[in-house]
């Protein structure tokens, strides 16, 4: 299962809400404002590090660059729209809007 989250964790609990439904082996794609969860040194970093134990986490490069996010939590993979399509090929999708 591919889960997409597009909300900042500082504004909204979507990431935490979604995480309750993640199953081992699932994939999380952070895009749009969701990429703010990727930064190191934030109050949500420990939460994301914990997620990484169970699910693979990707972050959309275009959104990271647009927001000048350069310090990523280790283990998060950067992807692009082509990579997004590949994730969709392999998984059913739920958008956590």
């Amino acid at each position: 299962m591919l889960h997409t989250v597009n909300k900042s964790p500082f504004q909204n609990t979507t990431l935490m809400d979604a995480a309750r439904f993640f199953q081992s082996g699932d994939v999380l794609l952070l895009l749009e404002d969701g990429v703010f969860a990727c930064q190191t040194g934030t109050i949500h970093a420990a939460f994301v590090e914990n997620l990484l134990k169970n699910v693979k986490v990707y972050a959309m490069r275009a959104d990271l660059k647009a927001r000048a996010i350069t310090q990523l939590i280790p283990g998060i993979e950067i992807t692009d729209y082509s990579g997004f399509v590949e994730l969709v090929e392999k998984n059913k999708v739920h958008s956590w809007l």
Binding site: F21, Q23, K92, V93, H94
Partner: peptide, 18 residues
Amino acid sequence: DSQAIAAMMAEQHNILSF
């Protein structure tokens, strides 16, 4: 429970969120 929902989600052909 959320576990049951997660299991159901995994069985779907497609999911629409509203």
